[in-house]
Amino acid sequence: MDGLPSEEEQEMTTETATVDVDVTVPDPQTASHSKELDSNFQTVGEVRVANARMTCTDVNVYYGDKHAIKHCNLDIGENQVIAMIGPSGCGKSTFLRCLNRMNDTIDICRVTGEIKLDQQDIYDKRLDVVPLRAQVGMVFQKPNPFPKSIYDNIAYGPRIHGLASSRAELDEIVERSLSKAGLWNEVKDRLDQPGNGLSGGQQQRLCIARTIAVEPEVILMDEPCSALDPIATAKVEELIDELRQNYTIAIVTHSMQQAARVSQRTAYFHLGSLVEVGETTQVFTNPQHKLTEDYITGRFG
């Protein structure tokens, strides 16, 4: 115990080194990418669409002193999937959480600007978040089933909102939601078993089913597949594609392939700024901004 094992020393130095790269020492290769854009930067591409379901104008988000989202303008079109991509910490999840005011649960978070759902400003002081969230549902990064049975997980939303007037109706909603989420055949015989007992992919589809059981009009998905294996991911992606018929969907994803596969429009975020928006095919084949191009071609991220 008097001498020091050399391994230990090694480990310590490497550990400090990695921390340094992230925080202070700029790597020459990523130097330009770690710089924030000017606050008067104009987003490249068409931020507005004809059939907008949600309209965001000059949205800013602050965490305490940190300016997390800067002057963001974006429309979310009806019955289409918009993907939000960008490197870690670029603010895409933060932006998504603004859309149904999930940021309200974080004390130090402050949002300015205007986000409209059907011409109604959702940050209006008089607006009630409960019906807003019933209208704009959300699926999270990590599956978070309630520690209740599968049935109760799905039935929870309809129950609190009084969407079913009878047990039969509730059964029907549960079956319909699970079927839409492609989970019905897998769980129909064990609806009374706990939701945490399912596999990761099943849990995430359970969470999606739970969200659509409330029949929201917009669904926000925050990296819904990041905790799933490829097969489960494929199933969820299929599901998203089907849901597009009836719902407006905004999805945050780390995987560019996924964005390309499921979305019609793509928005690229960089360090709190919305850099570029456009048709997915256009963004991926012919990006207009240098940062977008660098990210898509894999120079950083």
Partner: peptide, 25 residues
């Protein structure tokens, strides 16, 4: 406070049911 969300939409939206339940909740 939620009147506008109900506006100009005739199909049976679940949001209407939600709004109806709000007072009690």
């Amino acid at each position: 406070m939620t009147e506008t969300t109900q506006a100009n939409n005739n199909r049976g939206r679940s949001i209407d049911i939600v709004n109806a339940s709000l007072k009690r909740r």
